[in-house]
Amino acid sequence: MSPSADTSVVTDGINWLQHQRNRMIVLMVMAAVAMVIPLVANNYMLEVLTNAWFYTILCLGLNIVVGYAGLLDLGYAAFFAVGAYTTGILTSQFGINFWLTIPAAVLCSMLAGIIIGGPTLRLRSDYLAIVTLGFGEIVRIIARNLEITGGASGLIGIDRPSFFGIELSQGIHFYYVFLLLAIFACFVSYRLQNSRLGRAWQYVREDEDAAEAMGINRVGVKLYAYVIGAMFGGVAGSFFAVKMTAISPETFTFAQSVLILLGVVLGGMGKIPGVIVGAFALVLFPEIFRGLGSMRMLIFAIVMLIIMLYRPEGIWPRKQS
């Protein structure tokens, strides 16, 4: 599966996509399609697609950590959990309006990112991976055992929010909510990638020492990546809580973190279109092959291994230079 094996049609297509104007056209068409799909889709399809947009947000968030800054985070579900529980607790137990809980969720996930990232981001990458894994498990166990989080059974009966008087309760509502969030996440990712900070991430990823010698605060820029990634997870979790109306600790397992990571790796670390493709593959694959059941994660793991061995840049083609 070397790049030379790409058919010339694909190469031409990619070259064509290199032009800013052409890329905008494609994006507009895709956005338009995404907007009108609910008019023709049935409820099941809508649910699956909503889920795909949801994973797109999570994967884009993790992509900032893994793809841009090159840090392996094996506990990303923890930030998603922090967001979901913040909204869940504030709405169901304190009766606070959903929209007001979003800033709180963002703040809490940011704090969680700073608390875990601050002292650990100077560690070697493999140690960091283990620390994030441990942190993910700690968050889940805490959620399982505290009273305020509803223990092992979690929180139920989280109120659906209303938006200018319309109660967001139908599938189509959440489809649009998650679509808009995903578009916003793409926008933010794109802008960050092509910014001073985005370049700093790339410098640090390529050569930490050289980056530091150029005056870049290695730990500082990593912390930015970590905290921004955490915020993506927090926001996604917040909306997840009101969409599901119930959350339980078992949603936020290590397997969940690995799944999100898989989406990032599958499509191509650091590439926004790749990550979107990865997130969709993650959601659509088990829906298309329903008979697989418990084999799902096994197949995902095998795919992940094959990708790493033969095409570490992911399925999305690399830029032609």
């Binding site: 960050l192 910014s195 001073r196 900070l197 410098y203 150029m214 005056g215 930015y224």
Partner: peptide, 13 residues
């Protein structure tokens, strides 16, 4: 990099 200061919000907006 060390002679400039644009942060996250500046980059996004």
């Amino acid at each position: 990099h060390c002679r400039t200061s644009t942060g996250v919000l500046g980059s996004i907006f």
